[in-house]
Design a protein around this nucleic acid. Structure first.
Length: 425
RNA sequence: GGAAGCGUGGCCGAGCGGUUUAAGGCACUGGUCUUGAAAACCAGCGAAGGGGAGACUCUUCCGUGAGUUCGAAUCUCACCGCUUCCGCCA
């Protein structure tokens, strides 16, 4: 949620910032709502003050045993107008709040201009794609040969966009999650957390606009519960409605969880393989930091995610998203894209965003600063990494001509002696 | 699922229709003292929002939502959560 103070005091900067995203801010609509609000609120508070003063007077008079009939008659008329005003004001505040909640975050100055993916800027490229002396297969064919990925059974159980993993591939999937958790907890200073995979509407709305994104979520029938599309939904809400002590900052959490996405609106996209699924595992890293530190924290968090790719020796590139391609809540986002040889391209495997105070404002996530003032936290998160897509990348990059897949060195301690996934005999 | 008890500021906790403008304590901030720190003493100190050029001032908030009343932290109802006991259960 944007800062309404900024809208009142510096509308121009908001309009300009949103324009960089290709979003037109409806200034007249906002002004009408805002003027009306001001008038209603002033009048309502006037009436409340009048009633409070009269009631207090009645109390004093009664204490002394004096007659209160006159003053009671005077205040009796206030009630009705006050009630009408209070209701109208509440409705208007709702309207204003709903209006604000549909407006995305403002891009930071260093975010490049652009409308789409095509205008994202490559920041760095790490690792060299391996040169194959055979035609590399994609993970679907590799998985089939290993009898390790079974889409048919998954479809029988649950329909399209689900996966069953077996044997060494299932183990490697588990190993990847464990490996990522261990790196982030022991080397990057994150606290491991385990969280609910279902959250209430209020929780979902804290992280992102529920009204705007509810079609992307799975909702439990007859209950106010949603399956999380990322553990960010659960973990970010740790600080909802709280004031954190300065000495506890930064908060750094890592969480491994399944993620559930309905993928409405992406029919026909990535239908082959396990790139886009209704259920996938992800290791998520989050930070809640002092506002002055969020830019540095963003670089750190991105580097933390990149470290996983480096340790797995997977070639990747880091993209700085342009204003038009960023997510709703983000002020700046880096995407990490891993090399997939079969597709001969880089594919997104992580997205690392700085939300600044946008999310914190919506969640009322605050801290006491050096001077004892209450301020909003800055929140950041990123995938470190998407486990399913990392599995895809390992299978494709580590495949051998005979159809087997070599286990990356850093995963060996997690594989129970298995150094290679062999094709099914 | 059933029963009972309980939800008060960052934390603990008093208040149970009208000077509550929510006592007191802890924590925190500033000061005195000290070589420095601690302790002690003094002062300040809840959150969200509005109005005003400003000094300042007003409103809302005692789990949430309705209700009773001129007036609700306090009374009524519903819901949510926590604790304990019973039932069920991986």
């Amino acid at each position: 949620m944007l800062d309404i103070q900024q809208l009142r005091k510096d509308m121009a900067s908001v309009v300009a910032g949103l324009a960089r995203r290709g979003v037109a801010f409806d200034e007249p609509a906002f002004r009408i709502l805002e003027d009306h609000r001001k008038q209603l609120q002033t009048r309502t508070e006037e009436l409340q003050a009048k009633r409070n003063a009269a009631s207090k007077q009645i109390g004093i008079l009664k204490g002394k045993g004096d007659d209160t009939a006159g003053i009671m008659a005077e205040v009796s008329g206030v009630g009705e107008e006050l009630k009408a005003n209070e209701i109208a004001l509440a409705q208007l505040q709702d309207k204003l709040s709903n209006f604000l909640r549909t407006i995305p975050n403002i891009p930071r100055a260093e975010v490049p201009q652009g409308k789409s993916e095509a205008e994202n800027v490559e920041v760095r490229r790490v690792g060299t794609p391996r040169v194959f002396d055979f035609a590399p297969k994609d993970h679907v064919d590799i998985g089939a040969a290993l009898a390790g990925i079974d889409f048919e059974t998954a479809a029988k159980l649950s329909g399209t966009r689900f996966t069953v993993l077996k044997g060494g591939v299932a183990r490697m999937h588990r190993a990847l999650g464990q490996f990522m958790l261990d790196v982030h907890t022991t080397e990057h200073g994150y606290t491991e957390v385990y969280v609910p995979y279902m959250v209430t509407g209020e929780t979902a709305d804290g992280v992102s606009s529920l009204a705007k994104f509810k079609d992307d979520l799975f909702k439990l029938e007859g209950r106010d519960l949603y399956l999380i599309p990322t553990s960010e939904y659960s973990v970010a809400n740790f600080v909802r409605d709280t004031i954190v002590d300065l000495k506890n900052l930064p908060l750094k959490y890592v969480c491994h969880s399944p993620c559930f996405r309905s993928e409405a609106g992406s029919y026909g996209k990535d239908t082959r393989g396990m790139i886009r699924q209704h259920q996938f595992d992800k290791v998520e890293i989050l930070q809640m930091v002092h506002p002055e530190k969020s830019a540095d924290a963003h670089d750190e968090l991105t580097a933390n995610a990149e470290a996983i790719l480096q340790k797995l020796e997977l070639p990747y590139r880091t993209m700085l998203l342009c204003a038009g391609d960023m997510g709703f809540s983000s002020s700046k986002t880096y995407d990490l894209e891993v090399w997939l040889p079969a597709q001969n391209t880089y594919r997104e495997i992580s997205s690392c965003s700085n939300f600044e105070a946008f999310q914190a404002r919506r969640m009322m996530a605050r801290f006491k600063d050096e001077k004892g003032r209450t301020q909003y936290l800055h929140t950041l998160n990123g995938s470190g990494l998407a486990v399913g897509r990392t599995l895809v990348a390992v299978l494709e990059n580590y495949q051998n001509a005979d159809g087997s897949v070599t286990v990356p060195d850093v995963l060996l301690p997690y594989m129970g002696g298995l150094a290679k996934l062999d094709i099914a005999s």
